[in-house]
Design a protein around this nucleic acid. Structure first.
Length: 384
DNA sequence: TCTGGGGTCCTAGGACCC
DNA sequence: TCTGGGGTCCTAGGACCC
């Protein structure tokens, strides 16, 4: 989809059609999506909202509505599945389709792309762009070239001609840091990567990335499209973090936030019927430096109190003195199905304890809403 | 009022086991 | 003529993706 969140947000607001629109906001947020009008001012995704407002003071800022994005996304994916069952959902607004089996029924790949774009525009009122190639990686790059509202085909014979002039940063797996590193080494284009000895590349960016980049630079990509929906595979970790409205050095404020985040994560884990062994706490300071501390428990847990206790131990272990803290986070890794963990009986432990309390909280909030029941420490932490 | 929140994967060192 | 090799697990940090 082109500028997905922004497109959906303005879809029912014709008055905003030719106005710069930015989806994002929050007190210290970033741009989640900007329509093409806003982009002419230099506004980009992931940019701090402060900067976006400075670049484009007359932009209309809309809050994201993920429920709506989710609904639109699901229908778009269903439309894709009418063309081929081989739809690999990458994110809310992106998917790979293997249409090789649909050609006889629906015509050339180009015709299929046109059909899809027309259907999605009719049904959802938003535009999308399609890249077509014999490999997933090249199709992805082609789709970027096709934006907005277009189609780009890269036939097999044209792959290296298409790839080699591109900046190294275009390749999947090359972000800002690696791009800078490669540029410093004089490697600016995908062609440069292709013509650099693999060993040289490996010394620069590590064996794994080097091998993958070298292959991609020559258009080699063994990945196949696998029919997959978002959330098909179980999560390996679940976490939550939050940036404070303003930096804090108040230990009580931090601990309260750790409790809120622990409860949020544990609730999600119980809903998904998983438990995890490793608890990680993340702390970001006012200067944006970030550290993590983790602890692996003897057995997996989904108990709010156990996650919280581990998180506070880890935080306390840092021995911070009046540090200005910007963000804290809690993550649980090593998730396994709840049914596979057998709770160890601890000598002297109550027959009923925190796990039962969690169960009661879950049942109450299912019936009466998330605001129905919460630790007293967290009362008054929002307006509910 | 610079810089969100949800994830995954890789690297590297050290402990520990056989 | 000091101390191998292979493996797993844990921890911390970092890069990347959407």
């Amino acid at each position: 989809m082109d500028a997905f969140y922004a497109s959906v947000a303005v879809r029912d607001r014709p008055d905003l059609q030719d106005v710069p629109v930015v989806v994002g906001g929050g007190h210290r947020g970033v741009v989640l999506s900007a329509n093409y009008r806003a982009r002419t001012y230099g506004v980009r995704s992931a940019m701090p909202m402060t900067r976006a407002r400075r670049l484009c003071p007359n932009a209309v800022v809309l809050s994201p509505s993920f429920e709506t994005f989710d609904v639109v996304s699901r229908s778009v994916m269903e439309t894709f599945r009418q063309v081929t069952p081989l739809v690999e959902v990458v994110s809310l607004d992106e998917a790979f389709l293997d249409v090789s089996g649909s050609v006889r029924r629906l015509g050339s790949p180009y015709a299929i792309a046109s059909l899809l774009r027309a259907r999605i525009y009719d049904e959802q009122g938003i535009t999308c762009s399609v890249g077509m190639a014999a490999t997933v990686a090249v199709a992805k790059l082609a789709s970027r070239r096709a934006k907005p509202d277009g189609i780009v085909v890269v036939p097999p014979a044209a792959v290296t001609t298409f790839l080699h002039p591109l900046d190294v940063g275009e390749l999947w797996g090359v972000g800002e840091k690696t791009s800078d590193l490669l540029h410093r080494l004089g490697l600016r284009t995908v062609g440069d990567i292709a013509h650099t000895p693999l060993t040289t590349l490996q010394r620069a960016v590590g064996v794994h990335l080097a091998t993958s980049l070298h292959q991609l630079a020559w258009g080699e990509d063994r990945r196949v499209v696998t029919a997959r929906r978002g959330g098909d595979e179980p999560d390996k970790s679940m976490g939550a973090d939050e940036t404070f409205g303003r930096d804090t050095d108040d230990r009580e404020v931090v601990l309260r936030e750790l409790l809120r985040l622990s409860a949020k994560v544990a609730t999600r884990m119980r809903a998904a019927q998983v438990a995890g062994r490793t608890v990680t706490v993340k702390v970001r300071f006012a200067d944006f430096t970030t550290l993590t501390r983790s602890k692996t428990l003897g057995e997996a847990t989904d108990v709010t109190r156990e996650i919280y206790r581990t998180a506070t131990d880890l935080f306390t272990g840092l021995g911070l003195q009046r540090a200005r803290i910007r963000l804290v986070g809690v993550r649980v890794e090593g998730l396994v199905p709840r049914s596979t963990v057998q709770r160890q009986l601890v000598l002297g432990e109550r027959e009923r304890g925190w796990p039962e309390a969690d169960g009661a909280v879950d049942r109450a909030t299912r019936r009466f809403g998330a605001a129905a029941l919460r630790p007293a420490t967290l009362l008054g932490s929002d307006r509910a």
